[in-house]
Design a protein around this nucleic acid. Structure first.
Length: 519
RNA sequence: GCGCCUGUAGCUCAGGGGAUAGAGCAUCUGCCUUCUAAGCAGAGGGUCGUAUGUUCGAUUCAUACCAGGCGCGCCA
Protein backbone atom coordinates (compact mmCIF):
# COMPACT_ATOMS: atom_id res chain seq x y z
CA UNK A 1 0.00 0.00 0.00
CA UNK A 2 1.50 3.28 -1.05
CA UNK A 3 0.98 6.68 0.44
CA UNK A 4 -0.59 7.69 -2.84
CA UNK A 5 -3.18 4.94 -2.44
CA UNK A 6 -3.90 6.05 1.11
CA UNK A 7 -4.50 9.51 -0.22
CA UNK A 8 -6.75 8.33 -3.04
CA UNK A 9 -8.78 6.30 -0.59
CA UNK A 10 -9.22 9.34 1.63
CA UNK A 11 -10.41 11.41 -1.33
CA UNK A 12 -12.82 8.74 -2.52
CA UNK A 13 -14.34 8.41 0.91
CA UNK A 14 -14.90 12.11 1.28
CA UNK A 15 -15.86 13.33 -2.16
CA UNK A 16 -19.00 12.01 -3.77
CA UNK A 17 -18.53 12.08 -7.49
CA UNK A 18 -18.88 9.95 -10.59
CA UNK A 19 -16.00 11.77 -12.23
CA UNK A 20 -12.65 10.01 -12.09
CA UNK A 21 -10.57 11.06 -9.12
CA UNK A 22 -7.05 11.54 -10.32
CA UNK A 23 -3.88 12.60 -8.59
CA UNK A 24 -1.22 14.50 -10.43
CA UNK A 25 2.27 15.42 -9.46
CA UNK A 26 2.41 19.22 -9.65
CA UNK A 27 5.20 20.64 -11.74
CA UNK A 28 5.74 23.44 -9.29
CA UNK A 29 6.62 22.32 -5.81
CA UNK A 30 5.09 25.46 -4.31
CA UNK A 31 1.72 24.02 -5.18
CA UNK A 32 2.15 20.89 -3.12
CA UNK A 33 3.17 17.27 -3.40
CA UNK A 34 0.04 16.07 -5.16
CA UNK A 35 -2.89 17.81 -6.79
CA UNK A 36 -6.34 16.90 -7.98
CA UNK A 37 -8.53 18.71 -10.46
CA UNK A 38 -11.77 17.27 -9.13
CA UNK A 39 -13.25 20.66 -8.27
CA UNK A 40 -12.89 21.78 -11.88
CA UNK A 41 -14.67 18.65 -13.02
CA UNK A 42 -17.47 19.08 -10.51
CA UNK A 43 -18.16 22.70 -11.43
CA UNK A 44 -20.83 21.90 -14.00
CA UNK A 45 -22.88 19.39 -12.04
CA UNK A 46 -22.67 21.29 -8.79
CA UNK A 47 -23.38 24.66 -10.42
CA UNK A 48 -20.61 26.33 -8.46
CA UNK A 49 -17.30 27.88 -9.28
CA UNK A 50 -14.34 25.50 -8.97
CA UNK A 51 -12.55 27.55 -6.27
CA UNK A 52 -15.66 27.50 -4.09
CA UNK A 53 -16.03 23.73 -4.41
CA UNK A 54 -12.34 23.22 -3.81
CA UNK A 55 -12.34 25.37 -0.68
CA UNK A 56 -15.30 23.48 0.76
CA UNK A 57 -13.65 20.14 0.04
CA UNK A 58 -10.35 21.29 1.50
CA UNK A 59 -12.06 22.39 4.71
CA UNK A 60 -13.78 19.02 5.05
CA UNK A 61 -10.65 17.03 4.21
CA UNK A 62 -8.47 18.95 6.63
CA UNK A 63 -10.82 17.88 9.41
CA UNK A 64 -10.24 14.23 8.58
CA UNK A 65 -6.49 13.85 8.72
CA UNK A 66 -3.32 15.17 10.21
CA UNK A 67 -1.15 13.58 7.54
CA UNK A 68 -2.02 15.90 4.66
CA UNK A 69 -2.73 19.58 4.25
CA UNK A 70 -5.28 20.50 1.58
CA UNK A 71 -5.31 23.95 0.03
CA UNK A 72 -7.14 25.48 -2.89
CA UNK A 73 -5.22 27.31 -5.63
CA UNK A 74 -6.84 28.31 -8.94
CA UNK A 75 -9.56 25.72 -8.44
CA UNK A 76 -7.13 22.89 -7.92
CA UNK A 77 -6.89 21.04 -4.64
CA UNK A 78 -3.24 20.93 -3.73
CA UNK A 79 -2.04 18.43 -1.21
CA UNK A 80 1.02 18.68 0.95
CA UNK A 81 2.20 15.71 2.96
CA UNK A 82 3.22 16.63 6.47
CA UNK A 83 6.84 16.00 7.43
CA UNK A 84 5.82 13.65 10.24
CA UNK A 85 3.91 11.52 7.76
CA UNK A 86 6.89 11.42 5.39
CA UNK A 87 9.19 10.35 8.20
CA UNK A 88 6.76 7.65 9.22
CA UNK A 89 6.62 6.34 5.65
CA UNK A 90 10.41 6.30 5.58
CA UNK A 91 10.35 3.89 8.49
CA UNK A 92 8.46 1.39 6.35
CA UNK A 93 11.13 1.09 3.73
CA UNK A 94 12.65 -2.35 3.72
CA UNK A 95 14.28 -4.45 0.99
CA UNK A 96 10.73 -5.65 0.22
CA UNK A 97 9.33 -2.15 -0.24
CA UNK A 98 6.68 -2.13 -2.96
CA UNK A 99 6.03 -5.85 -2.82
CA UNK A 100 2.41 -6.68 -2.09
CA UNK A 101 2.08 -7.72 1.54
CA UNK A 102 0.71 -11.16 2.27
CA UNK A 103 -3.06 -11.05 1.97
CA UNK A 104 -3.00 -7.61 0.40
CA UNK A 105 -3.49 -8.86 -3.15
CA UNK A 106 -5.16 -11.97 -4.54
CA UNK A 107 -2.94 -14.93 -5.30
CA UNK A 108 -0.52 -14.20 -8.09
CA UNK A 109 -1.38 -15.18 -11.60
CA UNK A 110 0.54 -17.92 -13.37
CA UNK A 111 2.14 -16.18 -16.30
CA UNK A 112 4.10 -17.63 -19.19
CA UNK A 113 6.47 -15.05 -20.61
CA UNK A 114 8.04 -16.05 -23.90
CA UNK A 115 10.79 -14.02 -25.51
CA UNK A 116 13.94 -14.06 -27.63
CA UNK A 117 13.06 -17.42 -29.22
CA UNK A 118 15.78 -16.97 -31.81
CA UNK A 119 16.45 -19.49 -34.52
CA UNK A 120 19.36 -21.70 -33.44
CA UNK A 121 21.07 -21.02 -36.75
CA UNK A 122 23.38 -18.24 -35.66
CA UNK A 123 24.73 -16.26 -32.74
CA UNK A 124 22.50 -13.80 -30.92
CA UNK A 125 22.91 -10.16 -31.87
CA UNK A 126 22.08 -6.90 -30.16
CA UNK A 127 18.44 -7.09 -31.31
CA UNK A 128 18.01 -10.36 -29.44
CA UNK A 129 19.70 -8.63 -26.54
CA UNK A 130 16.92 -6.06 -26.45
CA UNK A 131 14.24 -8.75 -26.14
CA UNK A 132 16.31 -10.64 -23.60
CA UNK A 133 16.71 -7.60 -21.39
CA UNK A 134 13.12 -6.46 -21.87
CA UNK A 135 11.69 -9.88 -21.05
CA UNK A 136 14.06 -10.50 -18.19
CA UNK A 137 13.23 -7.22 -16.49
CA UNK A 138 9.50 -7.60 -17.04
CA UNK A 139 9.76 -11.03 -15.43
CA UNK A 140 11.68 -9.62 -12.48
CA UNK A 141 9.13 -6.84 -11.97
CA UNK A 142 6.11 -9.12 -12.27
CA UNK A 143 7.66 -11.60 -9.84
CA UNK A 144 8.44 -8.79 -7.44
CA UNK A 145 4.82 -7.73 -7.67
CA UNK A 146 3.62 -11.18 -6.68
CA UNK A 147 3.01 -12.95 -9.99
CA UNK A 148 4.33 -16.41 -10.78
CA UNK A 149 6.31 -15.98 -13.96
CA UNK A 150 7.86 -18.69 -16.11
CA UNK A 151 10.47 -17.42 -18.56
CA UNK A 152 10.46 -19.49 -21.71
CA UNK A 153 12.54 -19.63 -24.87
CA UNK A 154 10.90 -21.31 -27.87
CA UNK A 155 13.53 -23.09 -29.90
CA UNK A 156 12.75 -22.97 -33.61
CA UNK A 157 14.54 -26.24 -34.26
CA UNK A 158 12.28 -27.47 -37.02
CA UNK A 159 11.65 -26.31 -40.54
CA UNK A 160 13.63 -25.48 -43.62
CA UNK A 161 16.12 -23.06 -42.14
CA UNK A 162 17.36 -25.77 -39.77
CA UNK A 163 18.08 -28.22 -42.59
CA UNK A 164 19.77 -25.45 -44.48
CA UNK A 165 21.88 -24.58 -41.47
CA UNK A 166 22.91 -28.19 -40.82
CA UNK A 167 23.73 -28.66 -44.50
CA UNK A 168 25.94 -25.56 -44.38
CA UNK A 169 27.94 -26.86 -41.42
CA UNK A 170 28.21 -30.35 -42.92
CA UNK A 171 29.45 -28.95 -46.20
CA UNK A 172 32.29 -27.13 -44.45
CA UNK A 173 33.08 -30.24 -42.43
CA UNK A 174 33.57 -32.04 -45.74
CA UNK A 175 35.84 -29.37 -47.07
CA UNK A 176 33.25 -27.76 -49.30
CA UNK A 177 31.73 -24.28 -49.29
CA UNK A 178 28.22 -23.95 -47.87
CA UNK A 179 25.36 -24.00 -50.38
CA UNK A 180 24.75 -20.74 -52.22
CA UNK A 181 21.57 -20.02 -50.23
CA UNK A 182 23.02 -21.46 -47.02
CA UNK A 183 24.68 -19.84 -44.05
CA UNK A 184 28.11 -18.33 -44.56
CA UNK A 185 29.35 -16.67 -41.39
CA UNK A 186 32.71 -17.33 -39.86
CA UNK A 187 30.80 -18.98 -37.02
CA UNK A 188 29.84 -21.71 -39.50
CA UNK A 189 33.52 -22.49 -39.92
CA UNK A 190 33.94 -22.48 -36.14
CA UNK A 191 31.03 -24.87 -35.68
CA UNK A 192 32.37 -27.12 -38.41
CA UNK A 193 35.55 -27.46 -36.40
CA UNK A 194 33.65 -28.82 -33.40
CA UNK A 195 32.15 -32.24 -32.90
CA UNK A 196 28.44 -32.74 -32.49
CA UNK A 197 25.05 -31.59 -33.66
CA UNK A 198 25.39 -28.04 -35.02
CA UNK A 199 21.98 -27.10 -33.62
CA UNK A 200 22.92 -28.25 -30.13
CA UNK A 201 26.23 -26.42 -30.37
CA UNK A 202 24.57 -23.23 -31.50
CA UNK A 203 21.92 -23.49 -28.83
CA UNK A 204 24.41 -23.92 -26.03
CA UNK A 205 26.29 -20.89 -27.29
CA UNK A 206 23.05 -18.87 -27.23
CA UNK A 207 22.36 -20.06 -23.70
CA UNK A 208 25.83 -19.00 -22.60
CA UNK A 209 25.45 -15.56 -24.21
CA UNK A 210 22.11 -15.00 -22.48
CA UNK A 211 23.49 -16.14 -19.16
CA UNK A 212 26.38 -13.76 -19.62
CA UNK A 213 24.01 -10.78 -19.80
CA UNK A 214 22.08 -12.16 -16.80
CA UNK A 215 19.01 -13.16 -18.79
CA UNK A 216 18.42 -16.76 -17.81
CA UNK A 217 15.38 -18.81 -18.74
CA UNK A 218 13.33 -21.28 -16.73
CA UNK A 219 12.28 -23.29 -19.71
CA UNK A 220 13.53 -24.14 -23.18
CA UNK A 221 10.75 -25.43 -25.41
CA UNK A 222 11.63 -27.29 -28.58
CA UNK A 223 9.46 -26.87 -31.68
CA UNK A 224 10.66 -30.24 -32.91
CA UNK A 225 9.04 -32.00 -29.97
CA UNK A 226 5.64 -30.64 -31.01
CA UNK A 227 5.95 -32.53 -34.28
CA UNK A 228 7.32 -35.66 -32.63
CA UNK A 229 4.67 -35.84 -29.92
CA UNK A 230 1.76 -35.44 -32.31
CA UNK A 231 0.80 -32.11 -30.75
CA UNK A 232 0.74 -30.48 -34.17
CA UNK A 233 -1.63 -33.14 -35.50
CA UNK A 234 -3.84 -32.71 -32.44
CA UNK A 235 -3.98 -28.94 -32.96
CA UNK A 236 -5.06 -29.51 -36.56
CA UNK A 237 -7.73 -31.93 -35.41
CA UNK A 238 -8.97 -29.44 -32.84
CA UNK A 239 -9.33 -26.75 -35.47
CA UNK A 240 -11.10 -29.20 -37.74
CA UNK A 241 -13.50 -29.98 -34.91
CA UNK A 242 -14.28 -26.27 -34.66
CA UNK A 243 -15.08 -26.30 -38.37
CA UNK A 244 -12.39 -23.72 -38.82
CA UNK A 245 -10.49 -25.28 -41.73
CA UNK A 246 -11.03 -25.92 -45.42
CA UNK A 247 -9.10 -27.17 -48.44
CA UNK A 248 -8.22 -25.01 -51.41
CA UNK A 249 -5.59 -25.37 -54.15
CA UNK A 250 -4.39 -28.59 -52.55
CA UNK A 251 -3.58 -26.85 -49.24
CA UNK A 252 -5.36 -26.89 -45.89
CA UNK A 253 -6.42 -23.44 -44.70
CA UNK A 254 -7.45 -21.97 -41.37
CA UNK A 255 -10.50 -19.70 -41.62
CA UNK A 256 -8.77 -17.08 -39.50
CA UNK A 257 -10.94 -14.33 -41.03
CA UNK A 258 -13.77 -15.75 -38.92
CA UNK A 259 -11.74 -14.79 -35.88
CA UNK A 260 -10.60 -11.31 -36.76
CA UNK A 261 -7.66 -11.88 -39.11
CA UNK A 262 -7.63 -10.07 -42.46
CA UNK A 263 -6.95 -13.16 -44.55
CA UNK A 264 -7.06 -16.92 -44.16
CA UNK A 265 -3.82 -18.77 -43.47
CA UNK A 266 -2.29 -21.97 -44.77
CA UNK A 267 -1.84 -24.76 -42.23
CA UNK A 268 -0.68 -27.59 -44.49
CA UNK A 269 1.01 -26.74 -47.78
CA UNK A 270 0.05 -28.53 -50.98
CA UNK A 271 3.37 -30.35 -50.58
CA UNK A 272 2.03 -31.89 -47.37
CA UNK A 273 4.42 -29.93 -45.12
CA UNK A 274 2.94 -28.12 -42.17
CA UNK A 275 3.66 -24.44 -41.84
CA UNK A 276 5.47 -22.71 -39.00
CA UNK A 277 2.11 -21.25 -38.02
CA UNK A 278 0.61 -24.70 -37.48
CA UNK A 279 3.34 -25.66 -35.07
CA UNK A 280 2.91 -22.32 -33.35
CA UNK A 281 -0.77 -23.05 -32.83
CA UNK A 282 0.15 -26.34 -31.20
CA UNK A 283 2.72 -24.49 -29.10
CA UNK A 284 0.19 -22.00 -27.80
CA UNK A 285 -2.28 -24.79 -27.14
CA UNK A 286 0.42 -26.47 -25.12
CA UNK A 287 0.94 -23.30 -23.09
CA UNK A 288 -2.77 -23.26 -22.26
CA UNK A 289 -2.68 -26.97 -21.40
CA UNK A 290 0.09 -26.27 -18.92
CA UNK A 291 -2.37 -24.19 -16.92
CA UNK A 292 -1.12 -20.64 -17.36
CA UNK A 293 -3.59 -17.85 -16.68
CA UNK A 294 -1.91 -15.41 -18.93
CA UNK A 295 0.43 -15.68 -21.89
CA UNK A 296 2.78 -12.87 -22.77
CA UNK A 297 4.93 -12.94 -25.89
CA UNK A 298 7.58 -10.42 -26.75
CA UNK A 299 8.08 -10.05 -30.48
CA UNK A 300 10.01 -7.78 -32.74
CA UNK A 301 7.94 -5.19 -34.56
CA UNK A 302 8.65 -6.99 -37.83
CA UNK A 303 6.31 -9.76 -36.61
CA UNK A 304 3.38 -7.52 -35.77
CA UNK A 305 1.37 -8.74 -38.75
CA UNK A 306 1.54 -12.22 -37.26
CA UNK A 307 -0.42 -11.27 -34.13
CA UNK A 308 -3.97 -11.45 -35.55
CA UNK A 309 -3.54 -14.99 -36.82
CA UNK A 310 -2.20 -16.31 -33.52
CA UNK A 311 -4.95 -14.51 -31.65
CA UNK A 312 -7.41 -15.99 -34.14
CA UNK A 313 -6.12 -19.49 -33.51
CA UNK A 314 -6.39 -19.04 -29.76
CA UNK A 315 -9.92 -17.76 -30.11
CA UNK A 316 -10.84 -20.77 -32.20
CA UNK A 317 -9.28 -23.17 -29.68
CA UNK A 318 -9.89 -21.47 -26.36
CA UNK A 319 -12.89 -19.25 -26.93
CA UNK A 320 -13.29 -15.52 -27.01
CA UNK A 321 -11.17 -14.88 -23.96
CA UNK A 322 -7.80 -15.70 -25.42
CA UNK A 323 -5.42 -14.68 -22.65
CA UNK A 324 -2.54 -13.70 -24.94
CA UNK A 325 -0.78 -10.36 -24.79
CA UNK A 326 1.87 -9.57 -27.34
CA UNK A 327 4.41 -6.92 -26.45
CA UNK A 328 5.98 -5.50 -29.56
CA UNK A 329 9.42 -4.00 -29.53
CA UNK A 330 10.81 -1.84 -32.28
CA UNK A 331 14.02 -3.02 -33.83
CA UNK A 332 17.60 -2.20 -32.99
CA UNK A 333 19.80 -0.69 -35.67
CA UNK A 334 23.47 -1.29 -35.11
CA UNK A 335 25.97 1.33 -36.18
CA UNK A 336 29.69 1.70 -35.90
CA UNK A 337 30.89 5.26 -36.09
CA UNK A 338 27.69 6.34 -37.84
CA UNK A 339 27.89 3.56 -40.46
CA UNK A 340 25.07 1.01 -40.34
CA UNK A 341 26.24 -2.53 -39.64
CA UNK A 342 24.24 -5.15 -41.47
CA UNK A 343 23.21 -8.01 -39.24
CA UNK A 344 22.82 -10.85 -41.67
CA UNK A 345 23.52 -14.43 -40.75
CA UNK A 346 23.65 -15.29 -44.41
CA UNK A 347 26.53 -13.01 -45.32
CA UNK A 348 28.27 -13.77 -42.06
CA UNK A 349 28.92 -10.10 -41.42
CA UNK A 350 27.58 -9.64 -37.96
CA UNK A 351 28.48 -8.34 -34.57
CA UNK A 352 27.24 -10.61 -31.84
CA UNK A 353 25.61 -9.75 -28.57
CA UNK A 354 28.57 -11.38 -26.89
CA UNK A 355 30.98 -9.04 -28.63
CA UNK A 356 28.97 -5.96 -27.72
CA UNK A 357 28.75 -7.07 -24.10
CA UNK A 358 32.50 -7.68 -23.99
CA UNK A 359 33.16 -4.29 -25.55
CA UNK A 360 31.03 -2.04 -23.35
CA UNK A 361 30.21 -4.19 -20.31
CA UNK A 362 27.12 -6.05 -19.17
CA UNK A 363 25.81 -3.33 -16.86
CA UNK A 364 26.02 -0.72 -19.59
CA UNK A 365 24.50 -3.00 -22.25
CA UNK A 366 21.56 -3.89 -20.04
CA UNK A 367 20.98 -0.31 -19.03
CA UNK A 368 21.35 0.99 -22.56
CA UNK A 369 18.82 -1.53 -23.86
CA UNK A 370 16.39 -0.99 -20.98
CA UNK A 371 16.39 2.79 -20.79
CA UNK A 372 14.58 3.47 -24.05
CA UNK A 373 10.91 2.82 -24.66
CA UNK A 374 10.42 -0.45 -26.55
CA UNK A 375 8.07 1.51 -28.83
CA UNK A 376 11.01 3.42 -30.24
CA UNK A 377 13.50 2.07 -32.73
CA UNK A 378 16.88 2.02 -31.06
CA UNK A 379 19.99 3.19 -32.86
CA UNK A 380 22.87 1.50 -31.13
CA UNK A 381 26.20 2.92 -32.17
CA UNK A 382 29.11 0.85 -30.91
CA UNK A 383 31.61 3.69 -31.02
CA UNK A 384 29.19 5.99 -29.27
CA UNK A 385 28.29 3.36 -26.69
CA UNK A 386 31.95 2.81 -25.90
CA UNK A 387 32.65 6.52 -25.76
CA UNK A 388 29.58 7.14 -23.65
CA UNK A 389 30.10 4.28 -21.31
CA UNK A 390 31.78 6.75 -18.97
CA UNK A 391 28.81 9.07 -19.31
CA UNK A 392 26.27 6.30 -19.26
CA UNK A 393 23.46 7.07 -16.82
CA UNK A 394 24.00 3.65 -15.30
CA UNK A 395 27.19 4.90 -13.65
CA UNK A 396 25.39 7.95 -12.36
CA UNK A 397 22.89 5.72 -10.58
CA UNK A 398 25.55 3.31 -9.37
CA UNK A 399 27.63 6.22 -8.11
CA UNK A 400 24.76 7.37 -5.90
CA UNK A 401 24.60 3.90 -4.40
CA UNK A 402 28.36 3.74 -3.85
CA UNK A 403 28.40 7.18 -2.25
CA UNK A 404 25.73 6.13 0.22
CA UNK A 405 27.65 2.99 1.09
CA UNK A 406 30.71 5.12 1.72
CA UNK A 407 28.84 7.39 4.12
CA UNK A 408 27.40 4.43 5.93
CA UNK A 409 30.83 2.89 6.30
CA UNK A 410 32.06 6.07 7.89
CA UNK A 411 29.03 6.44 10.08
CA UNK A 412 30.68 3.79 12.17
CA UNK A 413 29.55 0.84 14.17
CA UNK A 414 25.99 -0.29 13.78
CA UNK A 415 25.41 -0.28 17.52
CA UNK A 416 26.28 3.36 18.01
CA UNK A 417 24.09 4.22 15.10
CA UNK A 418 21.15 2.24 16.40
CA UNK A 419 21.43 3.98 19.73
CA UNK A 420 21.52 7.44 18.19
CA UNK A 421 18.63 6.58 15.92
CA UNK A 422 16.57 5.61 18.93
CA UNK A 423 17.34 8.96 20.45
CA UNK A 424 16.39 10.70 17.24
CA UNK A 425 13.05 9.01 16.99
CA UNK A 426 12.13 9.88 20.53
CA UNK A 427 13.25 13.47 20.08
CA UNK A 428 11.02 15.89 18.22
CA UNK A 429 11.83 15.47 14.54
CA UNK A 430 13.28 18.60 13.02
CA UNK A 431 11.56 20.12 10.03
CA UNK A 432 12.71 18.56 6.80
CA UNK A 433 15.18 20.41 4.61
CA UNK A 434 13.75 20.97 1.08
CA UNK A 435 16.37 18.63 -0.36
CA UNK A 436 15.39 15.96 2.17
CA UNK A 437 11.74 16.46 1.39
CA UNK A 438 11.95 15.99 -2.37
CA UNK A 439 14.24 12.99 -1.91
CA UNK A 440 11.80 11.29 0.46
CA UNK A 441 8.90 12.12 -1.83
CA UNK A 442 10.69 10.35 -4.68
CA UNK A 443 11.62 7.36 -2.50
CA UNK A 444 8.06 6.72 -1.43
CA UNK A 445 6.85 6.69 -5.03
CA UNK A 446 8.55 3.34 -5.65
CA UNK A 447 5.36 1.30 -5.13
CA UNK A 448 3.31 3.30 -7.60
CA UNK A 449 6.21 3.19 -10.06
CA UNK A 450 6.39 -0.61 -9.85
CA UNK A 451 2.66 -0.89 -10.23
CA UNK A 452 2.78 1.26 -13.35
CA UNK A 453 5.58 -0.84 -14.82
CA UNK A 454 3.89 -4.15 -14.07
CA UNK A 455 0.77 -2.94 -15.84
CA UNK A 456 2.31 -1.17 -18.81
CA UNK A 457 5.52 -3.24 -19.22
CA UNK A 458 7.28 0.09 -19.79
CA UNK A 459 10.48 -0.92 -18.06
CA UNK A 460 12.31 2.21 -19.20
CA UNK A 461 10.39 4.00 -16.46
CA UNK A 462 12.57 2.16 -13.96
CA UNK A 463 15.61 3.84 -15.47
CA UNK A 464 13.99 7.28 -15.44
CA UNK A 465 12.95 6.76 -11.86
CA UNK A 466 16.41 5.59 -10.82
CA UNK A 467 18.06 8.58 -12.48
CA UNK A 468 15.66 11.03 -10.87
CA UNK A 469 16.20 9.41 -7.50
CA UNK A 470 19.97 9.49 -7.94
CA UNK A 471 19.84 13.16 -8.97
CA UNK A 472 17.82 14.07 -5.89
CA UNK A 473 20.24 12.15 -3.74
CA UNK A 474 23.29 13.87 -5.24
CA UNK A 475 21.60 17.22 -4.62
CA UNK A 476 20.80 16.22 -1.05
CA UNK A 477 24.40 15.16 -0.59
CA UNK A 478 25.61 18.64 -1.44
CA UNK A 479 22.92 20.44 0.50
CA UNK A 480 22.83 18.38 3.67
CA UNK A 481 25.76 16.98 5.54
CA UNK A 482 24.84 13.57 6.94
CA UNK A 483 27.47 12.92 9.58
CA UNK A 484 27.80 15.73 12.06
CA UNK A 485 28.03 16.44 15.77
CA UNK A 486 24.26 16.75 15.91
CA UNK A 487 23.34 13.15 16.69
CA UNK A 488 19.62 13.60 16.13
CA UNK A 489 20.10 15.08 12.66
CA UNK A 490 22.77 12.51 11.87
CA UNK A 491 20.46 9.67 12.80
CA UNK A 492 17.54 11.14 10.87
CA UNK A 493 19.71 11.62 7.77
CA UNK A 494 21.21 8.15 8.06
CA UNK A 495 17.66 6.87 7.93
CA UNK A 496 17.06 8.86 4.76
CA UNK A 497 20.17 7.61 3.00
CA UNK A 498 19.52 4.04 4.11
CA UNK A 499 16.08 4.27 2.54
CA UNK A 500 17.60 5.76 -0.62
CA UNK A 501 20.13 2.96 -0.73
CA UNK A 502 17.44 0.34 -0.25
CA UNK A 503 15.29 1.70 -3.06
CA UNK A 504 18.24 2.13 -5.43
CA UNK A 505 19.22 -1.46 -4.71
CA UNK A 506 15.70 -2.68 -5.41
CA UNK A 507 15.64 -0.91 -8.77
CA UNK A 508 19.13 -2.02 -9.77
CA UNK A 509 18.27 -5.59 -8.82
CA UNK A 510 15.15 -5.42 -10.97
CA UNK A 511 17.30 -4.15 -13.83
CA UNK A 512 19.90 -6.82 -12.96
CA UNK A 513 22.57 -4.16 -12.92
CA UNK A 514 25.15 -4.35 -10.16
CA UNK A 515 24.92 -2.03 -7.17
CA UNK A 516 28.56 -1.40 -6.30
CA UNK A 517 29.52 -0.46 -2.73
CA UNK A 518 32.40 1.59 -3.99
CA UNK A 519 33.49 3.00 -7.32
C1' G B 1 -3.27 0.50 -50.90
C1' C B 2 -3.93 -1.68 -45.74
C1' G B 3 -1.85 -2.41 -40.65
C1' C B 4 1.60 -1.29 -36.40
C1' C B 5 5.38 2.15 -34.29
C1' U B 6 7.64 6.99 -34.27
C1' G B 7 7.78 12.69 -34.96
C1' U B 8 9.15 17.16 -28.23
C1' A B 9 15.90 21.71 -27.33
C1' G B 10 21.80 21.42 -31.91
C1' C B 11 22.05 15.58 -30.83
C1' U B 12 19.87 11.17 -28.04
C1' C B 13 15.36 10.81 -25.64
C1' A B 14 11.73 11.16 -21.13
C1' G B 15 6.91 13.07 -20.04
C1' G B 16 1.80 13.76 -20.57
C1' G B 17 -6.22 16.58 -20.34
C1' G B 18 -4.33 21.38 -16.30
C1' A B 19 -0.58 25.68 -13.58
C1' U B 20 6.21 28.36 -15.95
C1' A B 21 7.01 21.38 -21.22
C1' G B 22 11.92 18.16 -18.66
C1' A B 23 16.74 15.11 -18.47
C1' G B 24 21.45 13.56 -20.50
C1' C B 25 25.11 14.86 -24.17
C1' A B 26 27.21 19.20 -26.54
C1' U B 27 28.36 24.93 -25.54
C1' C B 28 29.31 28.69 -21.64
C1' U B 29 29.99 30.18 -16.06
C1' G B 30 30.82 29.10 -10.95
C1' C B 31 31.92 25.07 -6.78
C1' C B 32 36.95 20.20 -3.98
C1' U B 33 41.59 22.12 3.56
C1' U B 34 34.76 19.10 5.41
C1' C B 35 30.75 12.22 4.36
C1' U B 36 33.62 9.80 -3.25
C1' A B 37 34.09 16.20 -8.40
C1' A B 38 31.92 9.27 -12.17
C1' G B 39 29.33 14.96 -8.32
C1' C B 40 26.59 19.91 -7.45
C1' A B 41 24.71 24.89 -8.86
C1' G B 42 23.65 28.33 -12.86
C1' A B 43 23.12 30.29 -18.31
C1' G B 44 21.71 29.83 -23.29
C1' G B 45 18.72 26.80 -26.47
C1' G B 46 11.34 24.83 -27.97
C1' U B 47 5.60 26.98 -33.67
C1' C B 48 5.85 19.53 -28.59
C1' G B 49 5.38 17.31 -37.44
C1' U B 50 0.78 20.20 -39.88
C1' A B 51 -4.51 21.18 -39.78
C1' U B 52 -9.31 20.61 -37.94
C1' G B 53 -12.36 18.78 -33.88
C1' U B 54 -13.83 17.49 -28.52
C1' U B 55 -13.09 20.40 -23.83
C1' C B 56 -13.63 25.52 -19.01
C1' G B 57 -8.55 24.03 -20.59
C1' A B 58 -4.93 20.10 -25.89
C1' U B 59 1.85 19.49 -26.51
C1' U B 60 -1.21 15.14 -24.33
C1' C B 61 -7.45 12.74 -26.64
C1' A B 62 -10.07 12.01 -31.80
C1' U B 63 -9.95 12.49 -37.14
C1' A B 64 -7.32 13.71 -41.54
C1' C B 65 -2.83 14.83 -43.72
C1' C B 66 2.82 15.12 -44.01
C1' A B 67 7.56 12.65 -42.90
C1' G B 68 10.53 8.33 -41.23
C1' G B 69 10.78 2.97 -39.69
C1' C B 70 8.64 -1.94 -39.98
C1' G B 71 5.20 -5.51 -41.93
C1' C B 72 1.40 -7.32 -45.44
C1' G B 73 4.44 -15.53 -48.35
C1' C B 74 1.78 -22.46 -49.49
C1' C B 75 9.15 -18.19 -45.30
C1' A B 76 10.38 -18.76 -40.16
Amino acid sequence: MSLRNDLLKLLRENISTDAPLTLAEPKNLDYGDYATNIALRLAKTRQKAPPVIAQELCAALNQKTADFVFTEIHGFINIKIRDACLRRELGRITPDYGRPAAGESPAGQKILLEYVSANPTGPLHIGHGRWAVLGDIIARVLSYCGQQVTKEFYINDAGRQINNFIASVHAVRHGQPPPEDGYHGTYITELAGLDGDPVELMLSRQKADLKNIRAEFDSWFSEKTLHQSGAVERALAALQKQNAVYTRDGALWFKSTDYGDDKDRVLVRSSGEKTYFTADIAYHQDKLDRGFDRLINIWGADHHGYIPRVQAALKALAGQTAPLTVILGQLVNLYRGGEPVKMSKRTGELITLQEVAAEIGVDAVRYFLAMRSADTALDFDLELAKKQSNDNPVYYVQYAHARICSILRQAGAAQGEAASRLRALTAASPELHPAERVLILKIIRLPEELEAVSQSYHIHRLCSYAQELAALFHNFYHECRVISADTATTAARLQIIRATQTVLKIILDLLAVTAPEQM
